[in-house]
Nucleic acid binder design. Structure first.
Lengths: 349, 349
DNA sequence: TCCTGGCACTCTGTAGGGATGAGTGCTAAA
DNA sequence: TTTAGCACTCATCCCTACAGAGTGCCAGGA
């Protein structure tokens, strides 16, 4: 696997092999390449070049007399050598715009819509990670008494996302009492990011303990329940949509075992989350091709991902998962456009 | 296909074939049956009986020299002839008890948990239909102002289920104003089922129009937005969990086409809902075997379903979907136990 | 009349062999 | 350096042969 600079001719041929394989899912022969490239070369010459490409690790050979197929390295070369990505068709852009509901929405719904949108347009599996609660900035908090010793905490984040959580009360507060507390809490914590609030609460509680202001103490306890995240609960939050699209891919219908292993990888969200986390603070589209992701069961898959933001804060990641043999330019455009639209939506409001 | 009363011997043999096939997924031969039943009959005799059973439509023959496999009719006979269903193992019952969160919960979460529970314990696809909003009885309603011209309506139903919906306001009400309205609305409509509220609203609005009480008029408009269902939105509400369990069934891994057709059936929730609707007001476990359900793509599947209730009101249906070759007694016990636990939970609070 | 042993028959699944076709690898000549 | 040509390699398809599983049927026995 000698790492060598490819000649221009080799690059053209490699690109052609990749494009062809992406289209057909069949190994590509030298004759096909000779016909498709306009280099005016005979199949025999192409064969020599392809043989070199195989030596350098860009192509592989299922068996002697089959055509060549791209390796992960070849896809990587192909993706890196892509120049301008052609934009999506107008209808698709419109579809993206229209899919998002306007106004404040619950985060689950929004992410659900996004993953459905991605899987629909890509015809592959769509992937969305929920915003890390640590990155949420509190805008407004409210408690509603549901029944004795139980209330719902509703809070809206700066990005206009609605979160709600049901909390058990130590004491049976009236709605009035709850309103008093929210008044105080909003004044105190509005505009702060959640992790900061967390530490502020600790500080306040220590102080209040001395002064012993019962109301404030209670307010602190409540807000802790409402806003402070138990690490394990919302940390595994990835939404996958359209996983059945995987069933349509010829490479997987032919090989049920591959398919099953992919689905089993889908079931372990925490591993997916690890991959996503690394993309979160990246710029633009991130692509993981084949075994570039460390999930063994997904070594036949590529991920195309893009962070989405509120202002400058990266909230989460969205993307698609499909076979390594996917239409990268299209997927990149799609994922980027969706991330942009979602980010704009979250930023504007 | 002569419909005839089966002899006791034929029944025993038929049951044995069904049980065997459920266990192995392989056609069952006469020798196997001879060994398994303690009738003291030779394979040849068994063969004669099996041949009769084939004539009467209970067994089928993939080809001359294969064993017999049960038809849908045979499964139906088997299910009907089941006597006492053995209860679930203690750990499984405990698992069911523990899976449900206590206290008020959002309906989506509750149903999600239920479908996951069902699919986990059955190792098949779990199915839960959301309560028809028409059957919900209002206990408490609240509005929270989120930002200008936008509020969240939160209402708790008698079964302790939390619903919330974001509504756009025609006028920019203050929170105070909203509270006034909720006070009135709760007094007026608390304890009524939603369809009744719907018609009451219409009545009130007509009356208010004459008296022209602005506050009440506004309250009516708001509650209409909050409580009255747009037919199409929440009507397709079925949650499927663990559909990938289908991948594990040998009959489907062997036949990718069957598998794909089942998954495509899963994608069209409205057809599932039709089936479910018919079960909603039934008593106890309902079973649809193979083509007893009208979804062509699911003719290799059986559904075991059970309505769940709040008091006497049937709210929705839960169940499992698996291959016709499923362990009916176990699934029946599982589905019944889950429905009971959920119903109790919804009734008690 | 019912049961059973025996045997022929049928069908599947697997293995082997030959033909076909796609595609490569190599070589010698341009 | 390129290319034409040819030998070679596999995969695939089709056919045949064969073993194994299981039935269908018949004739004899209880």
């Amino acid at each position: 696997m000698v790492e060598a600079k490819l000649s221009e001719r080799a690059e053209i041929i490699l690109r052609t092999v990749v494009q062809n394989y992406i289209g057909t899912a069949e190994p590509v022969g030298s004759r096909t390449i000779a016909k498709m490239t306009h280099l005016g070369l005979s199949p025999a010459t192409i064969r020599n070049v392809m043989s070199d490409l195989e030596d350098t690790g860009y192509l592989s050979h299922p068996h002697t007399s089959a055509g060549r197929m791209p390796t992960d390295l070849a896809y990587r070369f192909y993706v890196n050598s892509l120049g301008e990505i052609p934009p999506l068709a107008r209808e698709e852009l419109e579809k993206i715009e229209q899919s998002f509901p306007s106004g404040v929405r619950e985060i689950d719904d929004l992410m659900e819509v996004t993953s459905r949108l991605l899987s629909f347009l890509s015809q592959q599996a769509g992937l969305v990670s929920l915003p890390d609660v640590r990155s949420v900035v509190l805008k407004h908090l409210e408690f509603i008494r549901l029944r004795p010793y139980q209330a719902m905490a509703v809070f809206v984040s700066e990005s206009g996302i609605l979160h709600n959580r049901i909390i058990e009360l130590d004491e049976d507060f009236t709605q009035e009492k709850l309103d008093q507390m929210t008044g105080y809490l909003n004044a105190e914590f509005g505009g702060m990011p959640l992790p900061r609030i967390r530490s502020e609460i600790v500080k306040h509680m220590a102080r209040e303990k001395e002064q012993y202001d019962q109301l404030l103490m209670n307010a602190m306890r409540l807000s802790q329940k409402a806003l402070v995240q138990e690490e394990n609960v919302e940390s595994g939050q990835v939404i996958l949509g359209g996983t059945t699209n995987i069933l349509k891919q010829p490479e997987f219908t032919a090989d049920v075992d591959k398919m099953r292993s992919i689905f089993s990888a889908f079931e372990d969200k925490s591993r997916l989350l690890k991959i996503i986390d690394r993309v979160l603070h990246g710029q633009g589209v991130s692509i993981l091709i084949g075994s570039e992701n460390e999930i063994q069961e997904m070594k036949n898959c590529s991920l195309v991902m893009h962070p989405y933001t509120c202002g400058d804060r990266a909230l989460g990641v969205l993307g698609v998962i499909g076979p390594t043999r996917m239409e990268y330019p299209r997927m990149m455009a799609l994922v980027a456009a969706t991330a942009q639209t979602l980010s704009r939506l979250l930023t504007e409001r």
